[in-house]
Design a binder for these strands. Structure first.
Lengths: 224, 224
DNA sequence: GTTTGGATAAGTGGATACAAAAATGCAGTG
DNA sequence: CACTGCATTTTTGTATCCACTTATCCAAAC
């Protein structure tokens, strides 16, 4: 799934790892507001460790673009401007497009079945609420790009999904289950089924950029 | 230029920053071999500080993909397998393609003049040796994608150039100034001059992937 | 001769302590 | 009443220390 952004041995668990996962989860859920300062001591106290592993977790989160680190000024929640949000979608569009290009030639009937299942699950989750829907949506995309078998590509795309996650959630709540979502993803899956590599890549790119446009359209949720 | 991968205030200089830059430079120059272990204490001694800031620098380098960090096992120089090297080029191709797509509509005569100058400078550097050539080559590419004005895109592409830098250098030395380089980049600049966005994007993608193919062709330099 | 076990050494991760830097608040001045 | 400068407080950055994990090496057993 999404969680293993950084290579981590699942059996060994360090305090830094714990801090990283804890903070990533909180940030994904939008528990901290954009621009808010993260105080190492407080967080260390929350999860019962000293400041040091928390500091190291900050560095990883900064690399993921979730927080900003300035020398002697501490750690603030990154929050994306509208421009940055758009940029994230632009990058996603070409990366996921590339993934599709790599994946399409190898797709089989079993893959298509799984895609159909994931689409249905995403739809159902939409009834429940934004949190579920966003995760199912990520799951559907992740299923596709993971088939590429390209570790770096997978990690980069996953990281982008994490970065935009709070905004997707806000957007979904705000417009109340966008009707276009089902249709869009059905189109995408159809394009994958067609076996036409160039078409599928283009549809994926347009799908991602289309979402960006919708998102940008309604508001700028968490301006920095 | 390339160096500011992570947002850093240039006036404030912490020990961690110093360690990061020191190690990045060494890694770019291929001073450490792939798979070699980096011992915090040794490096700390070299630049006159304690292990701690070095450890934090390791985390940033790991995020850049230059080293690998395993719990309780320390830090080893990443080194790319042939597959990983190819993947880096694939990602570069779509990202730099995107950059070109964004940049082409706004290009003016002045930009073209600068591109011509950079091409000549790259050529001349080729006479001197691989180190200069690789830097000039990066400079040429950086000039193009930097015009996109997309901070995240710029940082990601720059990071990829850094990661593949040692391999470009080895390759350049090995085949002794590839003749195709001049021609390839002339084509690229011509495509930019044409003003045809789709064409320019395609030429950039093909240029990058073409380099990957050449590089993969002759050997696998630093197999992990 | 190879393998397995354990003792020892080396090295990493984390906590605490200390130094340096930035933020804050207050008083004095224009 | 706003502004400047200084003292205090807060917070960050780095060093050192300790505990625990991993690696190394040698000896004993098969």
């Amino acid at each position: 799934m999404i969680s293993n952004l950084s290579a981590a041995n699942s059996t060994v668990s360090t305090a830094e790892e714990e801090a990283y996962l804890y903070l990533q989860k909180a940030l994904r859920l939008g528990r901290y507001k954009a621009g808010e300062r993260l105080i190492p001591e407080d967080i260390a106290a929350e999860i019962g460790m000293s400041r040091m592993p928390v500091r190291e977790a900050f560095r990883r989160l900064a690399a993921d673009g979730l927080v900003t680190l300035r020398p002697n000024r501490g750690c603030v929640v990154a929050g994306l401007t509208l421009d940055e949000l758009n940029e994230a979608f632009e990058i996603r569009s070409v990366l996921e497009g590339l993934a599709v290009r790599l994946v399409v030639p190898g797709l089989t009937a079993e893959h298509f079945e799984e895609l159909d299942r994931l689409l249905i699950r995403m739809e159902r989750a939409g009834e429940a609420g934004s949190t579920d829907w966003v995760l199912r949506h990520q799951e559907l995309h992740a299923y596709i790009y993971t088939l590429s078998g390209r570790p770096k590509l997978i990690r980069q795309i996953a990281a982008l999904h994490v970065a935009i996650e709070p905004y997707m959630r806000i957007w979904f709540d705000y417009v109340d289950k966008p009707l276009s979502a089902r249709e869009e993803h059905q189109n995408l899956i159809d394009a994958l089924k067609s076996g036409d590599v160039a078409l599928a890549e283009r549809v994926m790119q347009e799908h991602v950029l289309g979402t960006a446009a919708l998102l940008a359209d309604f508001a700028s949720p968490g301006r920095r």
